[in-house]
């Protein structure tokens, strides 16, 4: 049974890739979840909402990202000071990238040629050329770099530094910082709105999301969260994702065990969705039919239907799920 499931999920991926046409919503997407304490990647068939495989990888896997053609997964194995390359057809590690010390989060350039990696231990963003597997530049940023974002046109790279409390805006052509925006304490995650005009930055300890105007690097507003019966210290925003039309934002609130749904136009919280414990990162399926949320303490992922704003399933994964990436 297990083998059959495994085969069908992978076959679906291979088929979709080899034919190369836009997949219909009925085609199963595959979600990959990094388990920070499990030293593993859980593979989930989005069609069946079931785990099809668990792959042993390096130590303390956190940030994960797919390559351009969705054939490989890049995995930050922080305690091994490396980025591993997982081949998604064979589910075998086929190599690694020189990452710099303690890689935590990474992002792929829109053309797939470069990886930008936050090195938490030495205040650097490392730029890696995927084809040659070489470090081509290291950009000094603030203390404990973490969140990474790219503008839709790929021209602005953003890194957040957790102890400096800034979003550093980097010109990807010159690889120089051109603006530093002070946000609230411990910024963890950054995300551009689909139109590229706003940058949203979550502050885990500050408990806010700063909305930044990209054109002039100004904070337009800080979104706060208020959940009755919950201590304000428990509200710790981390992962951010925008709906396909950009009208809604979803923000994972850590130990508040909720994902906030924000109306982007009014910048007001419309709803709180109850998920698992210490909800961390979020990812949409490529067709935006599901939003996955990793719940670190309860060892599961919550699958959210972004249309009805309901949690449709909780899927047990490995110990301390952290990152999630979803391939068509």
């Amino acid at each position: 049974m297990q083998i059959a499931l495994k085969f069908s999920a992978r076959a679906a991926v291979v088929l979709a890739l080899s034919l190369g046409f836009a997949r219909s919503p009925a085609t199963a997407a595959t979600a990959y979840v990094s388990n920070e304490k499990g030293n593993s990647i859980t593979v989930i068939d989005d069609d069946k909402l079931a785990v099809t495989d668990t792959v042993k990888v390096g130590r303390r896997p956190r940030g994960i990202v797919l390559n351009k053609d969705n054939t490989q997964l890049f995995i930050c194995a922080g305690d091994d000071d490396t980025i591993q390359i997982l081949d998604l057809k064979t589910l075998k590690i086929v190599g690694d990238l020189p990452s710099g010390a303690d890689p935590e989060l990474l992002i792929l350039s829109p053309d797939g040629a470069l990886l930008y990696v936050a090195n938490e231990n030495n205040n650097l963003v490392t730029v890696i050329e995927v084809a040659t597997r070489k470090v081509i530049e290291q950009i000094p940023v603030g203390v404990e770099p973490e969140g990474m974002a790219l503008s839709p046109d790929g021209r602005i790279l953003v890194n957040t530094s957790e102890t400096t409390n800034m979003a550093h805006m980097i010109d990807t052509a010159t690889r120089k910082i051109f603006a530093n925006v002070l946000v609230d304490a411990r910024p963890r995650s950054a995300q551009f709105t689909p139109d590229g005009k706003e940058l949203w930055v979550s502050a885990e300890v500050g408990g806010t999301v700063s909305v930044i105007s990209v054109a002039d690097a100004k904070v337009l507003q800080k979104i706060t969260f208020d959940i009755p019966g919950l201590a304000k210290e428990a509200i710790q925003p981390v992962g951010i994702r925008f709906s396909q039309d950009g009208a809604k934002a979803f923000v994972a609130l850590g130990p508040a065990n909720r994902v906030a749904v924000i109306d982007v136009a009014s910048r007001k919280v419309a709803k709180y969705l109850l998920v698992g414990q210490r909800v961390w990162q979020l990812a949409f399926t490529p067709d935006y039919s599901h939003l996955y949320a990793t719940n670190g303490v309860s060892n599961d992922v919550s699958v959210i239907d972004p249309a009805s704003l309901k949690v449709v399933k909780s899927i047990p994964v490995g110990p301390f799920p952290w990152g999630v990436a979803i391939a068509p």
Partner: peptide, 17 residues
């Protein structure tokens, strides 16, 4: 600089260049 042929950048970025 090297972005001359591209679309206008945000003011901050242009200033840096």
């Amino acid at each position: 600089m090297n972005n001359a042929a591209k679309a206008p950048l945000p003011a901050t970025l242009a200033a840096a260049e």
